[in-house]
């Protein structure tokens, strides 16, 4: 009986040590699709609408993402605008001048790349959130390509 007590105490102690939570109260994972087709490259940003840190994720080869803020998993709960840009791999190995190659053609429509135009807006709740980013190639109402300022 005494042995059982010891074991329980040890397990309890270990649980207390390992049970430290993360810095942020929410986690967001999900899948990225464009017109139902999986997007398996590119980056995602969660831009807070009311101050706070912007969170980000890389889309993996199966089309899934997992949001980080800085070097830690998760993000503070709240409302976010989401931007997504995925590109084809750069066509060239290097640019003509020897620098990095020009970026590949964008696979995602332009309005998803700008926080002020992106129709993707989500309320991130405390705890785990499963948010599938379903992009469509139909532009949102009133969309105009931003003028190139020069």
């Amino acid at each position: 009986m005494r042995k059982r007590t010891w074991q329980l105490a040890a397990i309890g102690l270990l649980a207390t040590c390992c049970g430290c939570g993360g810095t942020y109260d929410s986690y967001v994972t999900g899948e990225v699709t464009l017109d139902g087709n999986v997007i398996n490259t590119g980056t995602v940003a969660f831009v807070p609408t009311a101050g706070g840190p912007a969170a980000y994720a890389l889309i993996d080869s199966s089309g899934h993402y997992d949001v980080y803020t800085g070097n830690e998993r998760g993000l503070p709960s709240g409302s976010y605008g989401v931007t997504v840009v995925a590109r084809e791999a750069p066509a060239m190995e290097r640019s003509e001048t020897g620098g990095p190659p020009p970026p590949g053609k964008s696979l995602t429509p332009a309005w998803y790349g700008l926080a002020e135009y992106s129709p993707l807006k989500y309320e991130v709740e405390s705890g785990s959130n499963e948010i599938d980013l379903q992009l469509t190639s139909t532009p949102p109402a009133g969309w105009q390509s931003p003028q190139r300022r020069r």
Partner: peptide, 20 residues
């Protein structure tokens, strides 16, 4: 920016865009 103009409005996340 990703389109090599001086005042580009094309950037990839997680860069957060700032007008101008």
């Amino acid at each position: 920016s990703t389109d090599s103009t001086p005042c580009s409005r094309s950037v990839d996340p997680p860069q957060t865009i700032q007008t101008g």
